[in-house]
Design a binder for these strands. Structure first.
Length: 293
DNA sequence: TATACGTGGCT
DNA sequence: TAGCCAAGTAT
């Protein structure tokens, strides 16, 4: 029988999670809310394995929001190194400043207050509230969307993201008990991350195998709208931005136009990339060249 | 709602 | 090899 009631899923997922959760530093009970916030920024579109060493270094250097807020944003961008999407470093720094100035240096526990901070959207706000403070709110990321689409919806893949629909779907199965809700939020994400994966799901290891609607229906293929294919990175504007940022991070004095433009042969494309970085605040003009902010 | 935004590992 | 994929956010 498929898991149509609201107790089967959390019971199975939570038992599985309590026995199989990866030991990650931001899941340790003594981890600070700041440590959890930092992990959520780093984990946006980035695999755990690449985040781990960066997270340790970051927390050692800046153990509190105030510590990060006390240095220029460029230091955050430099320390971010090659984690990707360097705007996240800028936003995390801006977040630290806002927390220091408007929240007395304490990471807020309220979803709406978190949402008002730079770089924090619907997922991160709820993740911080739930995992750092135990607040009972639905946390929905790409893993949760996939788990619910399969186990409950009987579909191979979730449809296009819709905050309203996705939060409602999670709310419908979220335990009333605060602690069970926190574990279910984390457990559903973990299940999607290591068992109910996008490709080659390991149904043999899944605690929901016997109740999964998708499996019970015989694994019907997905027939909904396909997600747009990711553009090729090689030769893209993003590629050029990445090259420029790598140069700026390595430099400790202004990098000249000539030095930067030598990175890419297509002048027009290079100009677009540099202008974009300036507009984003990831690079600033200084004297004869460019530096991190 | 669709698109831009890094980087690297895996198949 | 080329493409797919990874705990999203902002516009």
């Amino acid at each position: 029988m498929p898991a149509t009631d609201t107790e089967t899923l959390p019971r199975a997922v939570n038992a599985w999670f309590r026995a199989n959760a990866r030991e990650l530093p931001w899941r340790e009970p003594q981890c600070s809310a700041w440590g959890i916030l930092v992990s959520e920024f780093m984990l946006q579109q980035t695999p755990v394995a690449r985040v781990l060493p960066q997270w340790h270094a970051w927390l050692e250097r800046w153990p509190t929001p105030a510590a990060l807020a006390s240095v220029p944003p460029g230091e955050a961008v430099r320390a971010w190194n090659r984690l990707g999407y360097p705007r996240r470093a800028l936003w995390l720094h801006a977040c630290a400043v806002a927390i220091t100035e408007k929240h007395g240096g304490v990471v807020p526990a309220d979803v709406d207050e978190l949402l008002a901070l730079p770089g924090i959207g619907p997922y991160t706000a709820r993740a911080v509230a739930a995992f750092a403070y135990g607040v009972r709110v639905p946390v929905v990321d790409t893993n949760v969307r996939r788990v619910l689409a399969r186990a409950v919806g009987g579909q191979a893949e979730p449809g296009p993201p819709s905050a309203t629909r996705d939060l409602a779907a999670m709310s419908a199965v979220l335990p009333l008990d605060e602690d069970e809700a926190r574990v279910f939020n984390a457990g559903a994400m973990e299940l999607g991350a290591i068992v109910c994966t996008a490709r080659a799901p390991r149904c043999g290891d899944c605690p929901l195998a016997s109740v999964c609607s998708w499996r019970l229906a015989g694994y019907p293929a997905y027939d909904g709208p396909r997600r747009a294919v990711q553009k090729k990175y090689e030769g893209s504007d993003r590629h050029v931005r990445g090259l420029i940022m790598r140069e700026l991070r390595a430099a400790h004095m202004p990098v000249t136009d000539a030095e930067l433009s030598a990175l890419w042969p297509d002048e027009a494309q290079f100009g677009r990339a540099l202008a974009g970085l300036l507009a984003d605040g990831l690079a600033v003009r200084e004297g004869a060249g460019y530096v991190l902010p």
